[in-house]
Nucleic acid binder design. Structure first.
Lengths: 343, 343
DNA sequence: CTGTTAGCGCTTTCAC
DNA sequence: GTGAAAGCGCTAACAG
């Protein structure tokens, strides 16, 4: 006797499909999944039957049986941060192609909430987890007693036994300054954001390296404060007052660069003729609408998300020892009118 | 004989907990879930045993049995759009509080991909779906032959039998213009974005309504083009050339408003003394860093996401007929220095 | 090629 | 109070 009549309302089950097609349940299963050897005619009957009653295979049952859910967790510390979203997109994209679905969890910077979400993800038997932080400062590891692999993106784990993918900030500002030098600038200053951010420190280091390699020195001290347009405006005013000879300014963010451009304009300094300006982050809304358009450093965050997904895939499939440690991913320079004039 | 020895490596099962606690499987289940009548001492033994072997209840099995997964799908048409994220945050937040986890799917504006994701979500037996669009233009319905309730957020469904939540754009620009009038302005112009967007048309209508209610007329035609700073700059230049008497400009977006501010500055017009400016969207990065800070309209998107989640909750729980149709959600005016001078 | 038998991990009647 | 039995919907061996 059928457990349940093949009525509408409930999603159809595979046994209903089997009955309708006049085959046994396992045969229907094989036919649906293209498994085993099933006569072509039989397969067609099954597929037609499934189509007819609108059969939707229950992944929950399948997952329970095969011991993998085909899902991963994306644990973010802060969805608001504008660096998280592109990473999310890249990861979701890469997973989607592999039939994997993504649970999104936002811990909003709270450790308790993070633990809570982690537990929920494990209860749901995710096959892996990507942890996305909002800054490049190292963050606490989730630990190693987890039953699934974990990859850290943007914010690296503070445990060297974890795998972390983060943009190479040092290389980024090195690129920026090398570009300025290549454009013939030699009196270069640096205005950046909050000194408590690893990103600020790393970028200053990159600037210093590029200058040193060219036998140059920074004009004035590196100027730290907040990651805002306002600070960019104020800092540029002070800088040009005290170092009017400056012919290029490397900025720690596009926001700061936008402020710098504003002040230069107010002071009647032409960009890029008198002073070249380079930003950081390549935030298109800001860079492509600036006057002139802003040269900037792009961290390829979407690519970073994709790579994190692929690394997790590998760790999930092979359960071989994953590579460990922090991988610094290459960034790229996007040249626009703030460093090279159009003609 | 136990199916599997209680060894490490595999996640512990409830039957292992039961064995360790010296009770039967059902009793362990009841103890864990606080169900039925279980002796306090027994419950403690079970909980201790669970703790000891690090038991993690398998939600997959539970879901299969009880017929609800405790998950929902968040189907976005485009993660990139900056209106989607706050809605996502609000929804994730509201669901998280209810022990519900969220599958994130980005269709990237592609119908095929959307159908693909929809199917995946149904296979995973989500209990409901929120569809988040990136524009306020109506979008095709997912249909009504779905086994789970659906709520549309931001982009309403084109089917009046669906429930949609979208910001009230008309009311928004009405608020903006009423504010300008209250500030003593009477020669008001309107610069907005792409006329193919419903948002542009709705906002123009709101502007007209507020002007008409005060017995005023728009100065010049409403100016349409793209949602960019650049257009804001160019449009403002033209506008002030042809209508130098204008004393206020209502803009269709904050980006446009930023461009307008730039041009006003270039022309030596004081804001807000000579010309007041109001933006739209309250995109903080743009509004709080403008000179002066930009008055704008906030669509309360996070709240919108939260409400969509709550509406979906209701529809999921009660399976009573959900309310139908498009609900226009209130927006709010955020006053800053571009309309009222500090003293 | 197809059907029978088992069982994934858990909850839920229902006797004891 | 507690345990035995019966599945949720599906797949992975095996026999036939």
């Amino acid at each position: 006797m059928p457990t349940r009549p093949p009525s509408m309302g409930y999603p159809a089950t595979l046994s209903e499909v089997a009955r309708l097609a006049g085959v046994s349940l396992p045969t229907a299963s094989k036919a649906m999944n293209g498994r085993g050897d099933v006569a072509a005619a039989t397969r067609k009957r099954v597929l037609d039957a499934a189509e007819q009653i609108g059969f939707t295979p229950n992944q929950l049952a399948r997952s329970l049986l095969v011991g993998r859910s085909g899902t991963v967790g994306l644990l973010t510390s802060d969805l608001e941060g504008r660096f998280v979203l592109p990473i999310l997109m890249g990861a979701e994209d890469a997973f989607g192609a592999g039939q994997v679905n993504v649970f999104l969890c936002d811990a909003r910077g709270d450790h308790i909430r993070e633990q809570h979400h982690l537990k929920a993800l494990l209860n749901r038997r995710v096959d892996g987890i990507i942890v996305v932080g909002r800054q490049t400062d190292p963050r606490p590891s989730l630990g190693h007693d987890l039953p699934v692999p974990v990859v850290y993106a943007y914010a690296p784990s503070d445990d060297p036994d974890d795998l972390s993918l983060t943009p190479d900030n040092e290389a980024g500002s090195r690129l920026a300054v090398e570009h300025l030098i290549a454009c013939g600038r030699s009196r270069i200053a640096h205005i950046t954001g909050d000194p408590s951010y690893a990103a600020a420190q790393d970028r200053v280091r990159g600037v210093q390296q590029a200058l040193a390699a060219a036998g140059l020195e920074l004009h004035g001290e590196a100027m730290f404060s907040e990651w805002s347009e306002r600070w960019g405006r104020d800092a540029a005013a002070v800088l040009l007052d005290r170092h009017p000879e400056v012919d290029a300014i490397a900025c720690g963010s596009d926001q700061i660069a936008r402020g710098v451009l504003d002040t230069l304009r107010d002071l009647g300094r032409l960009v890029p003729d008198d002073v070249a300006v380079v930003g950081y982050d390549n935030w298109e809304v800001l860079t492509t609408n600036a006057r002139p358009e802003l040269t900037s450093i792009d961290a390829n965050l979407q690519q970073l998300g994709r790579e994190a997904a692929l690394a997790l895939f590998r760790a999930m499939d092979s359960s071989q020892p994953e590579p460990k440690g922090v991988q610094y991913k290459p960034v790229r320079l996007v040249i626009r009118g703030s460093t090279i004039a159009h003609r």
